[in-house]
Each structure stands twice: as structure tokens, then as C-alpha cells.
Nucleic acid binder design. Structure first.
Lengths: 198, 198
DNA sequence: TGAAAGCATTGACCTATGTCAAGGAATATA
DNA sequence: TATATTCCTTGACATAGGTCAATGCTTTCA
């Protein structure tokens, strides 16, 4: 992975969403830094102040929360073209409660809190991009929330598989259980039941 | 409630968040309309395309989702200074899945999809306001999600009461149960247990 | 290549919360 | 003020998913 290729991917992503000039592209990329995340390494860890945000170029990350009992709850998996970070901590400067970890060797482009504020002044249309992104993310999370409170684990599993075919090849099963909000034992039993029903 | 007072409240709200000129205030308020919602009436109903958004001036609303079994799940209660609407449907033009209903006589200021897009061009700093609002909402929903998946109904109830003292005087108990993701029977039993433990 | 660590599966049992049904209290409406 | 709704409580029972423990299968890495 080269810096140049990564930045090209970022600009592609942005150009599909808001119009920017060649000059603005230059300015934008100057605020991003390429970072390699070896498998199992953390981009963000709970307890830290989260002053960086990342745009996934390649690889797979998991974004999760460790509850007081020590159980981990996956909020989402980050693949190419996704953003990872904690907006809450990013804005309030308080320590974050989430973790972002690479499930395999990954590459991300990062920007800092101070950087993006400066960049918003230089390229104001990014304010629009980030509004739209936040609103999209909000819609997605709202849907996830409603599914979590209204459907059982069985149906949530089917929904995930349909929405994301092939995810079982990318992510270990206990991480999928964590995403679904159940224990690995329960997922294992569920899959057995599904086989018998067919 | 007068139109003038309502619009004054809106401008106050905005001025606490981003700088705007007197002239911009005028422009902004011209895009909003005051609307009275009698108790039990709906501002938004599932199945409709959701082209309006509302800013609550007074009263109490509930924002909820009806699942396929017919159970209702409250996403949040809207009090003064809150926004109500469905960003997903607002953006995609698809029919919304949520409902917004007045729990008591309420007043809201509404704006339309087309209106806000025009307004963003005239007062670009609103783009920033809406980005910040969307990001805040996202943080709040993320926290609610993690609480829902990691704490039992008992602890979720205590968290709600602490975060929102007096809510039990404002909202009927079965609505609170719906917010917590349990049935009214379960909440009733829980409260009995809490009394015995003291 | 072989030990260690991590992962998936299975079993027996447990618990929080749902389900269904009934009666009583509170609130709204005529 | 009477009556109809809606809301709250309680009971008996059901069930999805959690808990704990054991076993074998992979993957990792020295």
C-alpha cells in the first residue's frame, strides 16, 4: 500500500459525494496520514482521548465496547471505505469507551481533531460531507437499534447474513456473536438448529 | 403560543451553537412554520414519506417504531429544544418506519426538506450546525445502544431515572417500559422489587 | 514440527423477561 | 356523575438465551 494510492482512494470517495476542485483535493490529502495496522493491533483503545479518526483503505477492523462485566460488544465491522473513530470523544475531549482493533493487516488514512477543524475552514464543503455522513450513520445505527430490540437473535443473524454475504469468511464466529449481542455458544447452537430445519 | 415567541426560542437555540447575524435570523425563521399538535395527534406516521422535520417548542412527544408483531418501541421522548423527524426517510424519500405522536398538547416549528436545502445555500453555517447536531445525536444513540445490549432492564431503568429525573411524572409507565425495551408487566414487577429491596 | 493458545461445539442447568389472563385503579368522556 | 377506556398490578407458566464446564479442533509461533 502506498500513500499515493491510499489518498487517491480517499479523493475518489469524496468526489462521489461532494464536488471538490483539484486544488482542494491537494489540500485535503495533506491533512491525512497513512497508517499501517498489523493484525490485532489497536487504532483506538478505551480510556484514551480519541483525537484521531480513520478512513479504512484496506483490511477489516472491529469497533467494540467492553462492558463493566468484561464482555465485548461489537458495534460494527469496518471494511474499505468506512470511517472508524469515536465522535463523542472526538468532540468532548473525554476518554473514549470504544476500541478499534484490526482483525487482519489493515491500512487506514487518519486525520486529527485539530486538522479537520482547520480543514473545514479551508474546504467548507467538507462540512456538508460530514453532515451527510453523520446523518447516514445515524440512520444505520437507528435501524440496528430497532432490529436489536424487536427481533430475536435468530432473525438478527439472518439479517446480517443477507445484508453482508460472505462475512462469515471474513470474521471469526465469536465476533459475529458479539455483533449480534449473544454468546458464541448461543450462535453455535443456533446454526445447528438452522441446519436441522432445512 | 405565538409564532413570534416560538421563533425567538429557535433563534436562541441556534445562537447558542453557531454565530448568525440578525439578517440571517430573519431568513432562517421564514423557513419555519408553527404547528400545534393536540394530545395524541401524530406529526409523523409510518408509511408516509417524511418531508418535514420539527423543533419542539413545548409539550412532550414520543418517537417510536412499530415492529412486525405490532409492539411499539420508543426511540426517545421529545421535549422542548429537541428535534423530531426521520433523517433516513428525509434523505432517501422512502416511506418512514417511525411515528411521532404528541403525549400532551404540544407546539413545534417545522421545516421541509426542500426548504432546508435552500436554506443551507443561503446560510451555509447551518450546514455546520446540522453536522454537529447529527454527531451529537449519534453519540447519544450509540450510548443508548450499548446500554441496551450490555445492561439488564433493571439497570437501564435506573439510568433513565437518574438521567431524566421527573420523567415518571411526564410520561405514562407503559411508555417508559416501551423505551426500556420491556413489557409494562415487567416494569411493574421490577418497581415492586426495588421497593422491597430498600 | 510440536506445544500453546485460541476457537467452536455440546451438555445440563439457570434466569430474566415474555405470555396470557384476570381484576382493580385511574382517567377521560358523555 | 356515570360509564367507558385506558392503565397498572398480580399470578402462573413458557422460553430465549446465559452460565459453567468439558472436549476436541485449528491456528500460531518458537
Amino acid at each position: 500500500m502506498t500513500e499515493e494510492l491510499a489518498k487517491h482512494k480517499l479523493i475518489q470517495y469524496i468526489k462521489e459525494r461532494v464536488p471538490i476542485s483539484e486544488n482542494e483535493s491537494e489540500v485535503i490529502t495533506s491533512y491525512f496520514e497513512l497508517r499501517h495496522l498489523p493484525k490485532k493491533s489497536f487504532f483506538i483503545q478505551e480510556g484514551q482521548e480519541c483525537i484521531y479518526h480513520g478512513f479504512v483503505i484496506s483490511g477489516t477492523l472491529r469497533v467494540f465496547y467492553s462492558d463493566p462485566k468484561g464482555l465485548e460488544h461489537v458495534l460494527y465491522f469496518g471494511f474499505a471505505d468506512w470511517w472508524v473513530g469515536d465522535i463523542a470523544s472526538f468532540n468532548t475531549h473525554e476518554p473514549t469507551h470504544i476500541n478499534v482493533q484490526a482483525l487482519e493487516d489493515s491500512w487506514i488514512l487518519t486525520f486529527s481533531k485539530d486538522g479537520i477543524e482547520e480543514l473545514f475552514l479551508k474546504v467548507p464543503i467538507l462540512e456538508r460531507l460530514f453532515r451527510i455522513m453523520a446523518q447516514r450513520t445515524l440512520s444505520v445505527l437507528q435501524k440496528r437499534f430497532f432490529l436489536t430490540v424487536s427481533a430475536n437473535a435468530h432473525d438478527r443473524y439472518k439479517e446480517l447474513i443477507e445484508r453482508h454475504p460472505g462475512i462469515e469468511q471474513l470474521v471469526p464466529q465469536h465476533q459475529i456473536a458479539s455483533y449480534l449481542g449473544i454468546l458464541p455458544e448461543s450462535l453455535s447452537r443456533m446454526k445447528k438448529q438452522l441446519l436441522h430445519k432445512k
